[in-house]
Structures are given as C-alpha cells and as structure tokens.
C-alpha cells in the first residue's frame, strides 16, 4: 500500500489525524493556565504520573512521544515522496499558468508544513529543552512560571501566533483532504465536512492563541 500514491495519501491522513488528536489534548492542557498556577502545574506533573502504578513514571509520556515522532516521520516521508512525484510529473512548466482552483491553504500545504516543522523544533527548544536564549529566569520545576516568563518575550508571542496561522491553514486543507482521501466524502456530506474541518481549523489556533495573549495582556501572571 505504501508504494502507491493513494497509499501514501492514506498514510498522511492517518498520521495527520494522530497529530490533530494530539493538538486537541495539548490545547486542553494549555487552557488549564486559566485554572491557576497550582492546577496547571498539577496537570503538567500528572502527564508524567499518567498510568501509574501500572505504567512506570514518565513512561506514558515517552510512549506518546514515540507515536508522535513516528507519525510525523511517516507524514513527512509521504509528503516528500509525493512532492517529488509531482515535480517529475511536470518537468517543464507552462509559460503562462492560471491555477484553476484552490485557495491560500491549498498552495501553502508543502511550505507551510515545512514551516510548522521548523516551529516545532523552536518550540521544543524553548519549552522542553529549555534553551536559555529563548526564555528568561524562571523558578525551576514550575511549568506555569516557565510559560509566563517565556511569553513575556514578545518575540516568542509573535512566532507562536504566526505558527498558529500556519496550523490553521494546514488544517483547513488537510482536514477536508482527510475525508476525501479515506473516501468518506460524498456529495451529501460535503457541506457538513467543510463546516467541521473549517471549525476545527479556526478553533484549534484560537484555543492555543488565547494563552500567550493572556500572558501578554497580563491576564495570566
């Protein structure tokens, strides 16, 4: 299946869904900042104690990371293979070309995806690997403090918001493509799917954006 073009698209749809699921969980966790410092830190710690005592300390988190990394790797591999096939399918371009259909989300899928990949690296460097140039002085072990200190730097806020625009665009096209690729889209459910994926493409970036904006405006401190 992975050899064919449709098989690669099915892989992209499946791995994309895993990441949408992850985004929703991540967003839920982020929104805990509005419940206060203690609740947020408790949530952050519970990610490590998840599944205990059946699962060892931090093991559920490691498992989640493995699934996410493998999904992303498969998603990127399929995208690159399909991009190469598309380039080889038209070695000589048109002197004049009018894109007959598609919107900004459609044409930014590949470069937007690359931009998102780079943002994820920066995001991990900032908040997981704690690279000191990106963050300020915070109380060690206090995740809430790290978040607030990080987002008092306007550079981090701006980059974060730009990345969310890219997330929204990627989901706008990718969400609808998910249903089309798996063959679930029909003439009858075209509008509901457009509505559902459109709502998701707006709700996820907004849900993430309120946190840095709340910090920047002093609502969360």
């Amino acid at each position: 299946m992975w050899r064919s073009s449709i098989g690669k698209k099915i892989i992209m749809a499946g791995t994309g869904l895993i990441w949408i699921g992850y985004l929703l969980v991540h967003m839920y966790g982020n929104l805990k900042v509005f419940a206060g410092e203690e609740a947020f830190n408790h949530y952050a710690e519970s990610l490590r104690t998840l599944g205990e005592p059946m699962v060892g300390h931090g093991h559920a988190l490691i498992l989640a990371r493995i699934v996410l990394i493998l999904s992303l790797a498969a998603h990127v591999w399929a995208a690159m293979a399909l991009t190469r096939a598309a380039q080889q399918a038209r070695p000589m371009g048109y002197a004049k070309f009018h894109q007959a259909s598609g919107n900004y989300a459609t044409i930014t899928m590949r470069w937007g995806g690359l931009a998102l990949g780079l943002f994820i690296l920066y995001h991990l460097a900032h908040l997981t690997w704690n690279v000191p140039v990106l963050t300020g002085e915070y109380e060690p072990g206090n995740t809430f403090d790290k978040l607030v200190v990080g987002f008092t730097n306007p550079v981090n806020v701006v980059l974060y918001l730009l990345a969310l625009v890219a997330v929204g665009l990627h989901l706008w096209h990718g969400g609808a493509s998910f249903f089309q690729t798996l063959g679930w889209r029909t003439a009858a459910n075209r509008q509901p799917i457009r509505f559902l994926t459109g709502a998701l493409a707006i709700a996820i970036p907004v849900g993430f954006a309120v946190v840095p904006l709340a910090v920047a405006t002093g609502l969360v401190a």
Binding site: R3, S4, S5, I6, K8, K9, L82, A85, A86, Q87, Q88, A89, R90, Q99, A100, S101, G102, T106, M109, H173, A176, S177, Q180, T181
Partner: peptide, 14 residues
Amino acid sequence: MDAEGFGGCTNVGA
C-alpha cells in the same frame, strides 16, 4: 497511473 509517471492528488480541485 503511478507507473506512467503521473503525480499524486492533493485535493486542489483544478
């Protein structure tokens, strides 16, 4: 279709 060297679909609709 793949063997002939056509590209894959990205649901553009053109």
